[in-house]
Amino acid sequence: MTFIITTPPAVEPVTLDDARAQVRVTSTQEDDLLTRLIETARQHVERTIRRALITQGWRLYLDDWPPGRVVRLPVTPVQSITSVTMFDADGMPLVLNLGDYDLDGISAPARLKVMAGVGASSRMLNGIEIDFTAGYGDAAANVPAPLRQAILLLVAHWYEHREAGIDAATASIPFGFDALIAGYRVPRL
């Protein structure tokens, strides 16, 4: 199973002003650094908890349907399935109809049930593509406050400790980060 992001989020869950306030900087001289830290912190939180925070597009590649035809999607919460496509041996796509599958976007991890009677791909590798939209919503306000705070905590920590080190302050994630994200972790597939 391979998955990639196809459409990145249009906004970040925290603003540049939020980050400036967190690190207690009033000038705009550090804006480029803070912008990079916000994006990197969001990506770190998303990877750690296996959730998309802001609406984004994803594609999952499968060789074949899993047992029971229940596909566990690698990122949650899933808003919708954009398309499910199977490829024949010549690479010709066959897009499944909406009635050929059912989405359980509430579960963590989210699940897609493919109905019996839907054939298998004749391509040996990556013969099935599932495109889906994931995230809490289009705006920062849709993201749970503890996850936004975890991002700000990372931004401030990385702002203060800009270089790799071996002491506890520079080599670790800041105290409180795990507590903020604990209730949002999705189990590994």
Results as ranks from 00 to 15, higher is better:
residue 76 T to N: 05
residue 84 V to W: 02
residue 83 S to H: 04
residue 61 Y to V: 02
residue 55 T to L: 08
residue 58 W to Q: 12
residue 62 L to G: 05
residue 77 P to F: 01
residue 53 L to H: 11
residue 78 V to M: 05
residue 51 R to C: 14
residue 78 V to A: 04
residue 74 P to E: 01
residue 63 D to E: 04
residue 47 R to I: 04
residue 45 V to D: 10
residue 52 A to F: 05
residue 70 V to Q: 01
residue 51 R to V: 14
residue 70 V to F: 02
residue 53 L to A: 11
residue 84 V to K: 06
residue 60 L to G: 12
residue 56 Q to N: 07
residue 56 Q to M: 13
residue 52 A to N: 06
residue 62 L to P: 02
residue 77 P to L: 00
residue 45 V to A: 03
residue 81 I to S: 02
residue 59 R to D: 04
residue 81 I to Y: 06
residue 47 R to W: 01
residue 54 I to F: 14
residue 78 V to Q: 03
residue 60 L to P: 07
residue 77 P to C: 00
residue 49 I to F: 07
residue 83 S to T: 14
residue 69 R to C: 07
residue 71 V to N: 01
residue 83 S to P: 13
residue 62 L to S: 01
residue 51 R to T: 13
residue 87 F to I: 09
residue 74 P to F: 00
residue 80 S to D: 08
residue 59 R to I: 02
residue 85 T to F: 07
residue 66 P to D: 10
residue 72 R to Q: 09
residue 44 H to R: 14
residue 64 D to M: 09
residue 70 V to T: 09
residue 77 P to R: 05
residue 74 P to M: 02
residue 47 R to N: 15
residue 55 T to K: 10
residue 65 W to V: 08
residue 86 M to R: 15
residue 44 H to C: 11
residue 80 S to T: 12
residue 58 W to F: 11
residue 63 D to V: 04
residue 81 I to A: 01
residue 67 P to M: 04
residue 47 R to K: 12
residue 67 P to G: 00
residue 75 V to F: 00
residue 71 V to Y: 02
residue 82 T to N: 13
residue 51 R to N: 12
residue 62 L to R: 04
residue 68 G to L: 05
residue 72 R to P: 00
residue 50 R to M: 14
residue 44 H to Q: 13
residue 58 W to C: 13
residue 55 T to A: 11
residue 46 E to Q: 14
residue 46 E to N: 08
residue 51 R to W: 09
residue 63 D to H: 11
residue 73 L to E: 00
residue 84 V to R: 04
residue 52 A to T: 07
residue 87 F to H: 13
residue 67 P to Y: 09
